[in-house]
């Protein structure tokens, strides 16, 4: 895995360098890989600090989004009125672009962490709720029949059969959520903030410190990829029984 990742990475850097040579653009338009690396090393303290803030927002958003999304799916499953009233609301919530409500959230929750966490939570909530609810309602009917002949209470059926059976669907939702989580946090930072990689990128852009902006972008991508692999590895450990017709080593 390390070897292949290195080859891909080196190839991309080389293409980037060739582009810089070919276009001969000034550093404030397109910095070279070396200049970006220099910015990364030279300004590592502020990049680390802002990167930490963004990572914290993403992780908190992922946590809250998963909890609220999971609870909503259970609510939808358990109560018919919840299905009739909450499901349309869930869909409408996705029809409103997050960009549109980002200024409102900043207005209500302030420039600090809270508005960004709320934004990330909103982005993550839907894939988690939708996939988990889907998994919960598609339990193999034979398993439910078996539970009935065993006098299982509705709670025991949920805990021992419906819930574990829905975990693969939830896992798909969590993988999607891990992919979109950084978007929520960075949008929040762009609209109004005093810290975070989105804030750093806006500041750097305004001052034509394009090398610093590229460095921040690189770290943001690193956080996104790292998060996806962490979630994927965690899910594989939690659900070892899940059939996977493609071996895990293909991605490594």
């Amino acid at each position: 895995m390390i070897g292949r990742a290195f080859v891909t990475f080196a190839g991309l850097i080389a293409a980037w360098q060739v582009l810089v040579w070919a276009t001969a653009l000034p550093i404030y338009m397109l910095p070279s890989p070396v200049q970006t690396a220099a910015a990364l090393v030279g300004r590592y303290d502020i990049i680390l600090w802002h990167g930490g803030v963004t990572a914290l927002e993403i992780v908190l958003g992922l946590t809250f989004g998963t909890i609220i999304g999971g609870a909503s799916a259970l609510l939808l499953l358990s109560f018919r009125p919840a299905r009739r009233w909450l499901l349309p609301m869930l869909l409408v919530s996705q029809a409103i672009p997050v960009f549109a409500i980002a200024p409102l959230l900043v207005l209500w929750l302030g420039y600090g962490l809270a508005s960004k966490v709320a934004m990330a939570t909103l982005v993550i909530f839907f894939p988690v709720a939708a996939t988990f609810y889907d998994g919960l309602r598609r339990t193999h009917p034979g398993w439910l029949d078996l539970a009935r002949t065993m006098q299982a209470s509705p709670w025991a059926t949920l805990r021992h059969i419906r819930l574990p059976a829905a975990l693969p669907a939830l896992a798909s939702g969590l993988r999607v959520a891990a992919g979109v989580a950084p978007i929520g946090a960075v949008i929040g930072e762009w609209v109004g903030s005093s810290a975070g990689l989105g804030y750093l990128m806006l500041q750097a852009n305004a001052r034509l410190q394009t090398d610093l902006m590229f460095a921040a972008l690189f770290v943001l991508a690193l956080i996104g990829v790292g998060l996806y692999f962490a979630v994927d590895a965690g899910l594989r450990r939690l659900l070892p029984w899940l059939p996977d017709t493609l071996p895990a080593t293909d991605m490594e």
Binding site: G142, W143, L167, L239, W241, L242
Partner: peptide, 10 residues
Amino acid sequence: MAQDDLLLPW
């Protein structure tokens, strides 16, 4: 007992 064994995969 059914035709499908209904064993839980987890």
